[in-house]
Simulated scan of single mutants.
Amino acid sequence: MSTRRVSSTLMMLFVLGSSMNAFAQNNDVLDENFVLDEMVVSATRSEKKLLDTAASVSVITDKDLNQMHINNLDEAFVKIPGVYVGRLSGIGSTTSQTVMRGVNAANSVAVLVDGVQVNDSYNGSVTWSAIPLDMVKRVEVLRGPASVLYGGNALAGVINIITKDVDKTSVNLKLSYGSNNTQNHSLYVAGKASDKLDFNVNYEKKKTDGYITDPVLSSKAVIGAETTTTNTGAKRWIIGNKGKRQWDENTVGVGFKYHFDESKSLALDFTKNEYEYSYSAPTSYFGDDIIKKAGTYFSTPGEKASNKYNMTYNDSENGWKAVVGYSDQYKQHDTSISKATDSSKPNTRFSFDLQKTKQFLLITMQYLD
């Protein structure tokens, strides 16, 4: 019995030692993947360690974005729990409603770039492809209501995009080509014009012949049609399509930042984005529903164009920050023959934010008798 007890004790010590060794090795991985001392500003609108933040916040760094090899910023949200942005047409998707924690309502998620809200003032959507990936330093995703700090558009949460500071001259050139004549070319140049003046220039072009995204469905069986089912399980027959969804987009931006001293700076940024989409020749099968559904085969082009102007003054020594933003969406046009609609929705947004941060010192005194 004593021999068995000694053997059991030695076995337990061996297992415990192996577990401790594995835990110590895994600690290195945990430290690399979860940086709890990362400074975030979304939860309280002032810099605070992620470990000390009570809110549900996730951080995506520029290093994470490089490792993902993505084309648009919203593609990175697949790594964030509770966040979904539909992109059913690839880079040609215009539906960019952000869903957070199941809230799928317009203007429910506030999206900010350096403190300036970039949501469409008409429906709350965001042109994610207009945000150059090379300029992003980190993305903070705050899940949960934040209307007290960010207004009514933050009912479901906040996505705060923070761009990079210029510390040295850099040039990033990317050229890519893929199937369906898909092209994604970008150029980003940043540097110092002087000891106090930084600048950055960016240009990006995205283009594709697209692929078929809008099949025409029939509730009756048609010879030569392809059988499918709806999301509720009902049987349908594909009797044709609208053709391939084509896309052409151009984005250009320029920014300047002047440093008055180590704590005071003034930044000016301008971004212009234009895109248009269309469909190639539609395809149909033979059948009785062809005449009845003739209008569903056709879809006409759409387009969108906007200019964004931002100005940010920051005085970190005294805790002052002022942000002014103006967005002029001067072109947004969608047409649909099947629904006989012609919609033009130009809109503008002006925002001003003044913030004062003050640190309070808490002194605890204890009297001993």
Score class of each variant (00 low, 15 high):
residue 360 F to I: 12
residue 237 W to N: 09
residue 228 T to A: 15
residue 256 F to L: 15
residue 244 K to W: 00
residue 76 A to R: 09
residue 215 P to Q: 01
residue 176 S to Q: 10
residue 271 T to F: 01
residue 284 S to N: 12
residue 20 M to Q: 13
residue 224 G to H: 00
residue 175 L to Q: 08
residue 355 Q to F: 00
residue 231 N to M: 06
residue 309 Y to H: 03
residue 188 Y to R: 07
residue 331 K to R: 11
residue 90 G to W: 02
residue 36 L to D: 12
residue 363 I to P: 00
residue 229 T to K: 14
residue 20 M to L: 10
residue 130 A to S: 15
residue 219 S to E: 11
residue 170 S to N: 15
residue 96 S to L: 06
residue 218 S to W: 03
residue 75 E to V: 12
residue 12 M to P: 00
residue 144 G to S: 04
residue 118 V to W: 07
residue 72 N to S: 07
residue 258 Y to E: 05
residue 340 A to S: 12
residue 36 L to V: 15
residue 52 D to H: 11
residue 26 N to R: 13
residue 275 Y to V: 02
residue 24 A to F: 01
residue 105 A to T: 12
residue 127 T to I: 13
residue 343 S to M: 08
residue 231 N to F: 06
residue 62 D to Q: 13
residue 77 F to E: 09
residue 327 S to I: 15
residue 290 I to F: 08
residue 113 V to E: 08
residue 141 V to C: 02
residue 135 M to V: 09
residue 115 G to F: 06
residue 170 S to E: 14
residue 234 A to W: 03
residue 361 L to T: 14
residue 144 G to V: 06
residue 3 T to I: 04
residue 347 N to F: 04
residue 242 K to D: 01
residue 61 T to A: 03
residue 55 A to I: 05
residue 322 A to S: 11
residue 13 L to I: 10
residue 263 S to M: 04
residue 207 K to Y: 14
residue 108 S to R: 01
residue 132 P to M: 07
residue 219 S to V: 15
residue 38 E to D: 15
residue 252 V to Q: 10
residue 222 V to C: 07
